[in-house]
Design a protein around this nucleic acid. Structure first.
Lengths: 200, 200
DNA sequence: TATGATAATGGACACCCTGTCCGGGATTTT
DNA sequence: AAAATCCCGGACAGGGTGTCCATTATCATA
């Protein structure tokens, strides 16, 4: 019995995913046509449609893998961390490190290159993580919880994007520190401590 | 003298902008074709291309108007505000009010409906505002300035989006308060105040 | 109001992309 | 080796894109 997928099929799928990745990095998702993809992957047109219903389907299928990949990265990281129960940003450290390891992949996803679908998928995945971290550490609902979640997710994506685009040499922990500082304590710590200038 | 633009041209342009707005709200920018636009605007195909090079051109031209619109809204607001020089988020109050007044316009721009172009344009406009506010109130560069700017812009867009999508009944000042709280002081104020458990 | 200037129209055009359908050829599995 | 499965290449209609042009409608002005 062939429970495993046919080698050829697996090969084709891999080629398509790889092509998508390459092309997204080069031109961005929206500007991509199925034609481009099968061209890059060197795969027949009908073959493509035998596997996926379109480029969005191909893209989405990639996120299934990412989801599991991340779920594991999170739990392995959580094993080594101690203060995870009081940390409303418990996900961040592992995520920044994961992003550093798979920089190319992340580069294709953030900064608009991934299009709306990618943006949504990522936000969903991250929202789930953040929601969990928050549930055990946030005890004040002055500000609605889903708003806080979105706030954190956006801040994280911003950090990621800024990191890759402007200071790719920084280490994950450095970016993580900035991210945590801003999200946990906001701008106040950065404002003039020497505010004794007794404004006019 | 014909310094003014021909009535017909103005009429056409207005119709196209209106059509774009309507359709973006209905289907989103990316899913839109030039065909749809000229169809909705009841304008000939060649006429469209006589004015714009494509749908992106049309979209961008709309932001020129928005830019000036906002520049004015800001300065009028700044006239009535007193503590603008110490406020790193001086732009926000006026912006939330402006957004409330032109809810339909904003709805087409945020939440992905506007596509990548819109996202970028908005971020550019907001970044400029934030940068100005920040220049006179931020005196600590522990965290790079452009990172802080992006952080604020993202937080603002998140607030805007959450507002429209989840709690449209809230007043601008209520959302503004939440936004400021999160950005200025971060999550700490929301965490267990009963944290006097003298963490071992 | 007459007239030259300018804009809008509708149709035609070649081009590209999309999905879908085959039959022949290649690879894998048994 | 045989049977099953997959891939290929070509063809297809349908739709969108930009561009052209000749014709018609509208405007600005003398």
């Amino acid at each position: 019995m062939s429970r495993e997928i046919d080698r050829r099929a697996a090969r084709t799928r891999k080629a398509l995913h790889q092509a998508l990745l390459t092309l997204m990095l080069r031109k961005g998702y929206e500007a991509l046509s199925v034609q481009d993809i099968i061209d890059e992957a060197d795969v027949g047109r009908s073959t493509f449609y035998a596997h996926y219903t379109g480029k969005e389907d191909l893209l989405r299928s990639g996120f299934q893998m990412l989801r599991e990949e991340l779920k594991e990265a999170q739990s392995t990281a959580r094993a080594g961390a101690k203060a995870s129960h009081d940390d409303p940003l418990g996900f961040s450290t592992a995520m920044f490190e994961h992003a550093a390891r798979y920089a190319d992949h992340y580069r294709t996803m953030i900064g608009g290159r991934g299009g709306a679908v990618t943006e949504n998928e990522i936000r969903l995945i991250l929202s789930e993580m953040v929601r969990q971290d928050l549930s055990s550490s946030l005890h004040d609902d002055t500000i609605p919880r889903d708003f806080v979640v979105q706030f954190i997710v956006s801040a994280f994506l911003t950090a990621l994007n800024w990191w890759f685009e402007r200071k790719p040499k920084l280490s994950p922990s450095q970016v993580d520190a900035m991210f945590r500082s801003l999200v946990l304590d906001g701008l106040s710590p950065l404002m003039g401590d020497e505010s004794r200038s007794s404004a006019d």
